Computed example of a mutant assay.
Amino acid sequence: MLGGMALMKSRARGMAAGIESELSVAVDVMFPMSVLTRTAEVFGKRFPLTPLRLYVEALGGVAKNVLQQQSQIGILCNLPISISGLMTERLLAVEMVNVAAPSHPLAMKNAPLGECEVAQHVQLVLTDRTELTDGQEFSVHSRRNWRLADLGAKHAFLLAGLGWGGMPLEMVQNDLDAGRLRELQLQDIPARVQISMSAAYRQDAPPGPAGRWFIEQLKNFAVESQGVQELKEYA
Rank of each mutant, 00 (worst) to 15 (best):
E183F: 00
A222F: 06
N98C: 12
A160V: 02
V99Q: 02
R180E: 11
K9M: 07
M167T: 03
G227W: 04
P32R: 10
L158K: 07
M171K: 14
W146H: 02
I73W: 01
A17W: 07
A156G: 05
P206T: 10
N98L: 05
L91H: 05
L79T: 08
S24A: 15
V140F: 08
M15R: 14
E95L: 08
V122N: 11
L124P: 09
W213G: 06
G60T: 09
L92Q: 08
G18R: 13
L49R: 14
Q69K: 15
Q185Y: 00
K9N: 06
I81Y: 08
L159H: 01
C77K: 09
A6M: 14
M1D: 13
A156M: 02
P112A: 01
A58Q: 12
Q123S: 05
K232I: 12
K154I: 14
A58M: 12
H141E: 01
E224L: 07
M171F: 10
E183T: 06
W213N: 07
F31R: 06
G165P: 03
M15Q: 10
D128P: 02
D175K: 07
G44H: 14
A235C: 08
Y201L: 00
F47I: 11
G4T: 03
P190Y: 06
A12W: 14
L113Y: 09
F47C: 11
K232R: 13
D150A: 05
G211I: 08
K45F: 09
Q72E: 15
V193G: 01
L23T: 01
S139Y: 10
S198G: 10
A93W: 06
N98W: 11
E183N: 09
P206F: 07
H155Y: 15
L52N: 13
G165H: 05
V56W: 14
A107G: 00
Y234N: 05
G114F: 09
R129V: 13
F43Q: 13
L132C: 09
N78Q: 15
E22I: 07
A63W: 08
T88E: 13
D128C: 12
V228L: 04
P168C: 03
L106C: 05
I83A: 02
K9T: 04
Q173M: 03
G161Y: 02
E183D: 00
A210Y: 00
P51H: 12
R202F: 11
N110E: 14
D177T: 10
Q70S: 12
R212N: 02
M30A: 13
F157W: 02
Q185M: 09
L52P: 15
I73R: 06
K232V: 09
L67I: 15
G18E: 11
L54S: 04
L162N: 10
K219E: 06
N220K: 14
A210T: 08
A160C: 05
G61A: 12
I215M: 00
